[in-house]
Simulated assay, not measured.
Amino acid sequence: MQTYLYLLIAVVFETFGSSCLQASQQFTRFWPSVGVIVGFGAAFWFFTLVLKVLPLGVTYALWSGIGMVLIALSGWVLFGQKLDLAATFGIGLIIAGIVVINLFSNSSTH
């Protein structure tokens, strides 16, 4: 369970770093630029802790899937970016894939 907590923390830091990347306006704003470095640095550190237990393919699939969902929500909430029906449907498929991996794959257990 601790492994999945580390994965979630990694994804939250990655979401923070990506949101700061948008807010940095191509690294022209100091504090958001610092947030990019802190966010991605912490995200990758927690990601390495997860890789001690889970295989790379499963870890990356979960990391990127959960991250895409959180980034889409972040873009919508923080930056007013709209999602059309196709994007919403695609995000739903990503969530379904995450559920399938966690419920049915023996690769995701440790």
Rank of each mutant, 00 (worst) to 15 (best):
Q2T: 14
T3W: 11
Y6T: 00
L8G: 08
I9Q: 03
I9T: 12
I9L: 12
A10G: 00
V11Y: 06
V11P: 07
F13V: 05
E14H: 12
E14L: 09
F16V: 13
F16P: 03
S18F: 04
S18W: 09
S18R: 05
L21S: 03
L21A: 12
L21H: 03
L21Q: 09
L21M: 15
Q22T: 14
Q22K: 15
A23T: 07
Q25T: 03
F27H: 08
F27I: 03
F27N: 10
R29I: 14
F30E: 11
F30Q: 00
F30W: 12
W31S: 11
W31Y: 15
V36F: 09
V36Q: 02
V38F: 12
F40Q: 08
A43P: 09
F44Y: 15
W45N: 05
W45A: 12
F46K: 00
F46A: 06
L49Y: 05
V50C: 09
V53Q: 14
P55Q: 08
L56C: 08
V58Q: 01
T59C: 08
Y60Q: 06
L62N: 02
W63C: 03
S64V: 15
G65A: 05
V69Y: 08
V69Q: 06
L70R: 02
A72S: 13
L73N: 08
S74C: 07
S74T: 14
G75D: 02
W76T: 12
L78F: 15
F79A: 01
G80C: 04
Q81P: 00
L83A: 11
L83I: 04
L83R: 01
L85H: 11
A86W: 13
A87F: 01
T88D: 01
T88L: 15
T88I: 14
G90E: 02
G90R: 07
G90C: 09
G92P: 03
L93W: 12
L93Q: 04
L93A: 11
V99F: 11
V100A: 13
V100Y: 13
I101R: 00
N102M: 13
N106F: 01
N106W: 01
H110S: 14
